[in-house]
Nucleic acid binder design. Structure first.
Length: 879
DNA sequence: CGATCCCGCCACATT
DNA sequence: AATGTGGCGGGATCG
């Protein structure tokens, strides 16, 4: 190499010279150019042959040499050659021999030539994308490294990422097995599901929070978030830390990071993820703010991963323009839907995928970690091994174990996300224009993303059929759909994608409900989608007008945004079909379409910023609605009606009313309700939104669905992070525990049914879940009477309050929390869907004591939470 | 000058 | 202890 220098003499030309690129410069010939700039200078400068140089050569000699050449040949060859072609000679002659020459060439390789992305391409070129099943291709790291002319370290970077997607698996030391992309779609599907759970919640979560906090309480802002969450989070986190540390398995971080990164794409509506956001989300540390350095490091790693994913053709680099400016981001260009296979039932499908690879003890790595915890459990279980990793596994149950960590981790993540979101939100808020309602993740950057609700809306329908659900937009929505579908199955008639899933998940923090809400014009505008969706369910009635809605499918249009869709369907289903269903939330109510209504209800919202803020929007009313839907719709309706119709939002009358009207309701548009728990268990917030919100919500929902579980999950609060599942059944048995948040969530859902309750239920923190859910009955029965109960009260309140009062729509937090009694109320699930119900997870404690819940906060909370967290509620059984 | 990200030190894991 | 793995971040390149 040096040689050239010398030859070149040019001392260093700067980069530009770099011939490398060739294309451009071709002119330059390598020779001429000094080619390597600085470096050359440094080392070789003097002569080519400097001792050093020779040394190097020698060193590399044995193998390196070869590899270099090879490398050149293969890699560069084309390029280089071309370049050189021009003048290769010159150089050559000077120095050295061929090898030298080659070397020489090498030199040229500019940085780009040595990039990980290129290296990865070469690597991938060596193996068939879809190898015959029969043959097993073994990959020797050493061999590949030498062939490609790079240090082994680089190969690890590639292989680790490929391993996260199951394209390869480690067989033994220094030995990997090439699987190709046969299982890629399955893997992605799994990741999507996991992502929904994990991140979907977050997203939602964020939204909520932000909304609540910021919007309403501007002051709090971020801090708040953390605070509230913190608790829970913290708790969890602690364990994490410890455990983590203990476990110390950092390994796999690249693999895990890679999976998480992919999940973000899959969950994002826009399919675009900015690096900074991803980094923030991926920083486990959680809130702590991570130092800047940490952030930087994360970004570096993300680049590494992104390069590999880019080589795989899964993502491409783009720039998102945000208010602030342009930011580097990556857009998912890989498959979005993953229909086939098993979707159904088992949500685990993924699991199925078993990756072969897992051999390593580590296997764990594969898992997705998803915080989703649940789903994957299976894996975990099998793995057995490493507890560490297992973390994710949730299952286990044990509270304490390391696994918890994961959860904790999860929490922390959520937190981070939340923070991130907030920021964004804030920003967004500032600029309402932005649209993206949730900007969350993706950053809607601009153009690309933008959130558009519209599309989403559509998809809901589509979903069923189409896989696409995913749509683009929704941030999270995608995830949702699946779920939705499940729920919805009916709607369209076709099963949706996910039909199976019986439950809904709520992110921990909050719950969402969908309600038919109204959409507002605005919303629509903004988020068209949302509106659409909402309607569908509503049936039509509504207006849904939005064309968007299209119900294409039939589904309901959910009013909500895309995301909503998911939920909606579910909800619908529930409602419709099953009563129990999971849907929880969705309700469509009101028919109005009119904007007015929207506005009105929304009004509150609208007025409030929240809309803007998020699309989520929530119209506040929604919440109530949701409730309604379940059992109570009335409330909502009432409220809504009120609002919409007359009132405006102002009034507060929330809850109570519902009773009266309860039934009245008409279909609303679907809206969501969101409930956020805040910190502790206590509080919840509801969001309703007509619009976008749904999306957000939907996400959540979707997540759930993904699971396939029949139950609904509710995540605990932010912190909590975990979702709980409620299943009716569960009820009692379970333990106590779960976080309040959950409960809340649960409650929501259930409300209807049966449980009963009456009362106020809500969840509070504790959530109560009631088990039961009755399915069908739920709905009806409850409605009137009880319905009010839980929902109403709570919702109403919250909603009402919110709405009414403030417009904020979103949820403010209502704080129900505390209120809530822990009791157990039942939640029903409408949500729950009947079918599945089940049991998947039941958590013990959860249902059981109300008290417990509270306590939890204290103690258990953390542990239990993590582990236990999930409650299930299944409607069916239980009861 | 900020975005990328190569490079390889070095800690930890596995043999 | 040797070797495999892979976290990590300085600092070189790119654009």
């Amino acid at each position: 190499e040096n040689i050239f220098d010398r030859s070149r003499m040019a001392p260093k030309t700067p980069v530009k010279n770099e011939p490398v690129d060739l294309s451009k410069q071709k002119g330059c010939t390598p020779e001429r150019n000094p080619i390597t700039p600085v470096k050359l200078v440094d080392r070789p400068q003097p002569d080519p042959w400097t001792p050093t140089a020779n040394l190097k050569m020698l060193v590399s000699a044995a193998s390196p040499d070869m590899r270099d050449r090879e490398k050149k040949k293969e890699l560069f060859r084309p390029i280089e050659n071309s370049e050189q072609s021009d003048t290769p000679d010159s150089l050559q002659y000077d120095m050295v021999d061929d090898s030298t020459v080659d070397e020489f060439e090498k030199q040229r390789p500019s940085r780009k030539q040595k990039s990980l992305g290129l290296l990865c391409q070469k690597f991938l070129a060596r193996y068939p994308s879809y190898p015959l099943s029969t043959e097993k291709t073994s990959i020797s790291l050493d061999e590949v490294a030498s062939i490609l002319g790079v240090e082994r370290r680089r190969i690890y970077d590639i292989v680790n990422v490929l391993e996260s997607l199951h394209l390869v698996s480690r067989v033994a030391k220094n030995q990997y097995c090439w699987h190709g992309r046969h299982n890629l779609s399955q893997t992605l599907k799994t990741l999507q599901e996991a992502g929904e759970l994990q991140y979907g919640e977050l997203m939602t979560f964020f939204q909520h929070k932000e909304q609540d906090l910021e919007y309403k309480f501007g002051e709090r802002k971020k801090e708040t978030i953390s605070d509230s969450q913190d608790r829970p989070l913290l708790d969890f986190s602690e364990p994490d830390c410890t455990s983590a540390s203990a476990n110390s398995r950092k390994d796999k971080s690249l693999r895990i990071m890679s999976q998480k990164f992919v999940m973000l794409f899959l969950v994002s509506k826009t399919k675009i993820v900015t690096l900074d956001i991803a980094a923030k989300i991926l920083i486990e540390e959680t809130q702590d703010t991570v130092d800047h350095s940490k952030f930087k490091t994360k970004v570096r790693r993300l680049y590494d991963i992104a390069n590999v994913l880019t080589s795989l053709g899964l993502i491409k680099k783009v720039h998102v323009t945000e208010e602030r400016g342009r930011k580097p981001a990556f857009k998912w260009i890989g498959p979005v839907e993953f229909p086939r296979k098993n979707d159904e039932t088992r949500g685990h499908g993924p699991t199925s995928d078993p990756l072969p690879g897992t051999q390593r003890g580590a296997s764990a790595p594969y898992q997705i970690c998803a915080t989703g915890k649940q789903r994957f459990t299976r894996h975990a279980s099998f793995n057995g091994a490493q507890p560490c990793e297992g973390t994710r596994r949730k299952v286990s149950s044990e509270p304490n174990s390391p696994r918890q960590e994961r959860q904790d981790e999860y929490c922390s993540k959520m937190i981070n996300l939340a923070a991130v979101c907030k920021q964004k939100i804030e920003e967004d808020t500032r600029n309402p224009s932005i649209t993206s309602p949730l900007s969350l993740l993706p950053v809607p950057g601009d153009s690309d993303f933008c959130v558009n609700p519209l599309p989403q809306a559509v998809f809901p329908v589509v979903q069923a059929d189409v896989p696409s659900l995913s749509l683009p937009n929704g941030i999270s929505s995608q995830a949702l759909h699946p779920s939705t579908p499940a729920a919805s199955k009916t709607e369209n008639g076709k099963p949706t994608l996910l039909p199976n899933q019986p439950f809904l998940c709520f992110p921990s923090s909050s719950l969402f409900m969908l309600c038919g809400g109204l959409q507002e014009d605005n919303l629509r505008e903004t988020l068209p989608t949302t509106g659409d969706v909402g309607n569908r369910r509503a049936e039509a009635q509504a207006t849904v007008p939005p064309a968007a809605c299209q119900k294409r499918s039939s589904h309901k249009c959910a009013s909500l945004s895309v995301p909503v869709d998911d939920e909606e369907p579910a909800a619908k289903k529930q409602t419709m079909e099953q009563n129990d269903v999971p849907l929880s939330l969705v309700v469509a109510k009101k028919p109005f379409e009119s904007p007015k209504a929207e506005s009105t209800p929304g009004s509150g919202c609208t007025s409030a910023e929240h809309l803007e803020a998020f699309h989520l929007d929530l119209a506040s009313p929604a919440a109530p609605e949701a409730a309604d839907k379940e059992s109570t719709k009335p409330l909502d309706s009432q409220e809504q009606e009120k609002r919409s119709q007359n009132k405006d939002p102002d009034e507060p009358t929330p809850g109570k009313e519902h009773i009266s009207k309860e039934n009245a309701n008409q279909p609303f548009l679907p809206q969501y309700l969101y409930v956020q728990p805040t910190a502790g268990l206590s509080s919840f917030n509801f969001l309703f939104s007509a619009n976008q919100a749904p999306g957000a919500i939907s996400l959540a929902a979707s997540q759930l669905p993904s699971l396939s579980v029949p139950c609904i999950m509710v995540p605990s609060a932010a912190l909590a992070s975990f979702p709980l599942i409620c299943s009716p059944t569960i009820t009692s048995p379970l333990s106590p525990v779960p976080n309040g948040s959950f409960s809340a969530a649960a409650s929501m859902n259930f409300s209807v049914s049966g449980l009963a309750s009456t009362t106020p239920v809500f969840i509070g923190t504790t959530a109560v879940v009631t088990p039961k859910v009755s399915p069908a009955p739920l709905v009806d029965p409850q409605q009137p009477a009880h319905p009010a109960l839980h929902l109403s009260p709570v919702l109403a309140r919250s909603c009402g309050a919110v709405k009414l009062d403030s417009p904020v729509c979103v949820g403010h937090p209502v704080t129900l929390l505390k209120l809530q009694q822990p009791s157990s109320t039942p939640l029903t699930p409408k949500s729950i869907r009947p079918a599945r119900h089940e049991a998947f997870f039941k958590t013990p404690g959860s249902l059981g004591d109300p008290v417990a819940w509270k306590k939890n906060e204290g103690n258990q909370s953390r542990n239990a939470s993590s582990v236990q967290r999930r409650l299930e509620i299944s409607s069916t059984s239980p009861d």
